[in-house]
Design a protein around this nucleic acid. Structure first.
Lengths: 220, 220
DNA sequence: TGATAATTTGACCGGTTGGTAAACATTACA
DNA sequence: TGTAATGTTTACCAACCGGTCAAATTATCA
């Protein structure tokens, strides 16, 4: 009989674990590049270096593969936000959150794109996880930010939109990579663009664009 | 014989113009929702209210439809940036650019998602337009910003990453709409979220998160 | 080793999809 | 009105795609 991973009393074999890993790695590659609908099981099988039926022996449907991948990615994707520390110095907490998110955009662009693809298509498979775990975590951290603002440690602002703006600015460098490269051109599109981005974003979030050297005229 | 729109000495008929408009409208709806691969010609035909072969009479392939749509959208998408005025007041120029982009995210989310989808998939069809017209325009405006910074009218910063950050923060509200709604929840997900976003982004870009009321300690 | 379970594969299937052929309908216009 | 160009539809096809099946191969272990 052939029961791959469902309904088994025993734990998963080493070989099962390895193969599933191998498959998810290939699936990440293909899904992030072509989206769910655009990816074909044959493609994933080829990248994974195995036959299609063999792949479907471990994940019974294409959708099951996608689900497994998404939940895993969503989890690691939120790690930087979890590290957000209420006890730390507000400005340096935000600064390092930006840095961590930017590092993820640099080192795990496929994961970012997979996620972006899913959201863009209306998040048909993960709406629950967005409204559940994700919202909870954001609510919690938003409260931290609000407390900081109330204590005068940071400018008063909408904490949710602050988080959104950090997400969007950092993930932009993964999701819109082609555009970023095209606009920056040959000379500035090297790996240095992440450092430039980090420098700019830190400045933006901390002091904005106003000239901080000279005191502004009192009129406004 | 049946030559829809190619190789004709005469201009396009009124009926052709109307039908092509009708098709592109439907194509925008479907492509922006499902991506290129995810959209089917039948779907588009149904939304457009005509039969599939009739649709293919005006656009010979699915890809031709997509191309026509993308180039048109890209063009209108760049309008706000074109309005960016070198002679105006820097801060208010940036402010109104943010506002315009945010309005587009609110009023034309389908266009934004279509574009995002294309970039996300590696921009197979529009890489030339990115490296050509888009880059030129951005280069030009970046020079304006650099001049402002040099003249002390604005904080010194990387103009390209400034533009990226405005793009990403504003388009986020169209492209990641589902996520934004999910996180904000029922109470704050109404149309007011765009005003909240506008308020936050203006603050962010102008003064950042530092507490501007109190003078900062002179150490830094 | 032998038997049993787990894994792998080639062949195949039904449904979908982009696109075509050709007949039919409508419009433009002399 | 006649006729040629334009527009529309029905029927259809070949390729593709997700998934199945049964047979073959390999690992597990008494």
């Amino acid at each position: 009989m052939a029961l791959p991973r469902a309904a088994r009393t025993q734990r998963r074999t080493r070989i099962q674990e390895a193969k599933e890993e191998q498959i998810l790695e290939a699936a990440l590659e293909v899904f992030s590049l072509h989206g769910f609908r655009g990816a074909t099981v044959d493609q994933i099988a080829e990248v994974a270096g195995m036959s299609k039926p063999n792949l479907l022996y471990y994940f019974r449907t294409k959708e099951a593969m996608h689900r497994a991948l998404i939940t895993r990615v969503l989890d690691t994707w939120l790690d930087p936000l979890r590290e957000f520390d209420a006890e730390g110095n507000p400005v340096s907490e935000i600064r390092s959150y930006i840095r961590r998110k930017l590092e993820m955009a640099r080192d795990f662009p496929r994961e970012s794109r997979l996620f972006a693809n899913e959201i863009l298509q209306g998040a048909p498979n993960i709406e629950d996880e967005l409204k559940g775990p994700l919202k909870s975590l954001v609510d919690e951290k938003a409260e931290v930010i609000r407390a900081w603002a109330k204590a005068g440690k940071i400018a008063r602002c909408d904490p949710y939109h602050l988080i959104f703006s950090i997400w969007s600015t950092t993930q932009h460098y993964a999701d819109f990579d082609v555009q970023v490269r095209a606009v920056l051109g040959q000379d500035h599109a090297g790996e240095g663009r992440f450092e430039d981005a980090a420098r700019f974003l830190e400045q933006l979030f901390v002091t904005g664009l106003d000239i901080s050297e000279e005191p502004a005229p009192a009129s406004s």
